[in-house]
Amino acid sequence: MNRTRPLVLGIETSCDETGVGIVRGTTLLANTIASSMEEHARYGGVVPEVAARAHLEALGPAIGTALGEAGVTLGEIDAIAVTNGPGLAGALMVGVGAAKALALSLEVPIYAVNHLVGHVGADLLDDEAPLETPTVALLVSGGHTSLLLVRDLVSDVELLGETIDDAAGEAFDKVARVLGLPYPGGPEIDRAAIGGDPAAIRFPRGLTHPKDLAAHRYDFSFSGLKTAVARWVEQREAAGEPVPLADVAASFREAVVDVLVGKAVAACADLGVPRLLLGGGVVANSRLREVARSRADAAGIALRVPPLSLCTDNGAMIAALGAQLVMAGHAPSELGFGADSTLPVTEIQA
């Protein structure tokens, strides 16, 4: 096997995106994503069984598309990488079963990797300015909201904090529903907030009070915020007053972004780590990128935001992390690994 610039095919099926990516070392060759998002829209959130069924249908064609895009054949692949958690168990198992069989059929090693660490690995695919460690990473999506300290991508990742209830992306979906906006809520709220005043309504910032900070310095909570928005809107309605949609959307979004960026920047300062990496689908939110940029600049923190196609769940980031493990000389995963829906971030490789 080529250990200096291994050709790795990565498979990601932890949520509603079927991702197949191909990298050579740190060079991105293909990033194919098939999403079942539309099938979930009418349920207002990801339905695990619907997602798992869609993965099974999409995976084979996605592998074919990725190979075509990369201009390589399966026979050239040096190793397979696959997400084994965290995520939806039934969805993960489709990828795990397929990846094991693919590796065996090609007689190549398999690397089972952590989805969250994969999000950080996405940033390796920038050939011009390689990822530097240590870095703090803020990973925000519909499935997770986590703050990590990455000292070494393949051997030392620590969970600083995570959401204790809803993921940030979930909060966007739920508040969108309160406001009568369709799923997924992130882009809808972004659009509705145009022209709105982010300071119009002071919605609560979860786990930011001094009493909460003692136990939850880097944790997040968004369920109270969602309730506060619903209550505010209902009171307006009950009083027969119009609901200023743009102001509500902008103020809600500001509360989410304020907490996310505030805690991430605080972690950088506390730990003396002048680097912050963003990842996850919520990075698509324009205000999150804007606020992160300005506060990072003000604090002298180097902010890194991979291209959006590498921020949402994808197979390229899994391949990139797999390639790092190969290049670092790590042994492949034993074939007996399973899907672990609550895989801790410290378990980078199974």
Binding site: H55, L56, L59, G60, I63, G64, L74, M93, V94, G95, G97, A98, A99, K100, A101, L102, L104, S105, L106
Partner: peptide, 11 residues
């Protein structure tokens, strides 16, 4: 099993 069989056949 179906995913594994599919992938092996592809391989």
């Amino acid at each position: 099993g179906i995913a594994a069989a599919h992938a092996f056949a592809l391989g």
